[in-house]
Design a protein around this nucleic acid. Structure first.
Lengths: 339, 339
DNA sequence: ATGAAAGCGCTAACAT
DNA sequence: ATGTTAGCGCTTTCAT
């Protein structure tokens, strides 16, 4: 009933042509105020809503943005980062009147399934794709497709990709420098999954900080923790025999695992080992002691990604856009700087 | 180039009518094998992909399912439940060749913004909406709209809604009964947000277990923790003066908070206070001691919700469907049953 | 300022 | 088995 309502019907009831009705609907120009009002009243009275698909077909834009998260199941919900990123992007889509379509790619095989769907102009007006080992092949293909694409995180080997990232190098460097200034000189690191640029860049920041203080990078003090709690736990266990006096963890989740390992070894944080991590997500304040950590603006990150995509959609992919967002060291208890 | 490709073009190149080309595209009947093959070859050679929006308009179905999560920002990423639910639903959509559109409703006001979009047949073939205080008004409206809707979780006051839920009552009852059998008789409870049915039902299960053992419900031993870590922490602090010998927590996250409060009070789990919770999400195995908890099948839950929706889409909303999924007590360390 | 007409790219009922 | 003919509901030139 309220459903068979079409723009033609509205036009008829308002005594105008469908064109004029369309103009009113889209707040277009060239409509006499009184006519506009009349049409609007009919729209309001009937509760008419335009058929979004018909609009899409005619206007050649769907007002739908796709978010592609290439990530294994476990990584996806063990890491508080993704829900938060998704939330930020969803919010931004909302604010710009776009609908968000979510694509979770669990395996490389999913790529083949998704690509035809999303690369075809029509369903999606644009795509935000998160970097990650899975799906990095997709990035290349997407960039040459006719769907505007923006990458969340720094992609490897895609020089003309538009992307937004946080300054992982500077952030990590700041975290490690803080530990150095507190007088530590055997600073170990728990790295993330080294197949990701986030992990690589944070490691780079760690090295830079040490080198700036004329300290060598001791590889026996570096262990891969894959960004997860359990990974951090195990990596920390590997590091303990080498007696670090401080640890920089590439994620809060790993820091949680490190805390466990340290306690089980009969040591305490920050007394025996000082700890600084990266993220500033909920685990940071849940942990005891609370984590000193490099804050990254995840929400703003999502907003920036969407805004960049909108820009690319409007003005084309060249030149490639680039936004590197600042991080900020948040000092809490785990570093020992405050009591 | 590869984009101006339309079904007409394919038909022309294959020397058939557009109808026949369409038949081949949709694996329809009544096409001679040789013709079918010829068309398929042209499709393959040209890399043709049908325009999904045009298909939607003509066929009156979008192959898009909407997931509506009415939840405040904080709740959304402090609780590992939602990412996991989303993941399960996304996976199920995938498997059934549907695209997932995500709608995060942060405020009641968002309702007004979303409703027109999603209630209009066209964009969405169906909707899965998660229950929650925000958005419960939406449920009523959606149920009377012409978009097939299924609720994730038991909705309050919507007798003819189709929904899938876990057996919160039985699950909670099993958890508390376990504590009773271990000999505890001052069992406190940390409840979730009591405006949600999940929290209410788990409380009901708690009461039932006590009553089955002829124990009264002592309200001084019950405190609301809103499902969050910090909420559980504070609720536990309120309970400690009343000397419970065991605690049933309505979520793993709250149990984490409770652990903190208990340790800070100089007590240990399970020695001084035994602990059983609900969820069996990642926090359960990260916590020390590991949590004895009522496992709920979140992934399967999402799958069931999608399958129910598909059923409703196909066969109409009546009679209302109902699926209550079983839970299972997972015994770990926090209850003290094992060493 | 308004409307007629031509699509947008596809599906489907109806011939043949 | 194949093609013809209408749409699906809207936007958008192009006249007027």
């Amino acid at each position: 009933m309220t459903d068979k309502l079409t723009l033609d019907e509205i036009a008829k009831r308002a005594g105008v042509s469908r064109t004029t009705a369309s103009r009113v609907l889209n707040d277009g120009p060239n409509v006499r105020p009184e006519v506009r009002e009349r049409v609007q009243r009919v729209i309001a009275e009937t509760g008419y809503r335009p058929h979004p698909v018909a609009q899409s077909l005619a206007s050649q834009q769907s007002h739908v943005i796709g978010l592609v998260l290439p990530r294994r199941t476990e990584a996806l919900f063990n890491d508080p980062y993704f829900p938060r990123l998704t939330q930020g992007i969803a919010q931004a889509c909302n604010d710009h009147d776009y609908t968000l379509a979510l694509f979770l790619m669990q395996t490389e095989a999913d790529e083949e399934k998704f690509y035809p769907r999303i690369s075809r102009k029509g369903l999606l007006d644009g795509i935000v794709i998160q970097v990650g080992q899975i799906g990095d092949g997709l990035i290349a293909r997407l960039l040459t497709s006719d769907v505007p694409t923006v990458v969340a995180g720094r992609p490897l080997n895609h020089p003309n990709a538009s992307y937004v990232d946080v300054d992982n190098v500077a952030g990590a460097c700041a975290g490690v420098t803080h530990l150095l200034q507190l007088g530590h000189n055997r600073i170990g690191m728990l790295t993330g999954d080294m197949r990701t640029t986030a992990a690589l860049d944070r490691y780079t920041g760690y090295c830079e900080a040490l080198q700036a203080h004329d300290l060598p990078v001791d590889e026996t003090l570096v262990s891969e923790g894959y960004f997860t709690e359990i990974g951090g736990y195990e990596a920390m266990q590997r590091l303990l025999p080498h007696k670090p006096d401080a640890i920089f963890s590439a994620s809060d989740a790993m820091a949680l695992g490190a805390l466990r390992a340290i306690y089980e070894a009969g040591l305490t944080v920050p007394h025996d080992i000082a700890l600084v991590s990266f993220d500033d997500l909920p685990p940071a304040t849940i942990a005891r002691p609370q984590l000193t950590t490099v804050h990254q603006p995840v929400d703003a990150f999502g907003v920036k990604a969407v805004e960049m995509l909108l820009d690319v959609m409007k003005n084309g992919p060249t030149p490639p856009r680039r936004i590197i967002m600042d991080t900020k060291l948040v000092i809490r208890q785990s570093c020992g700087a405050v009591s």
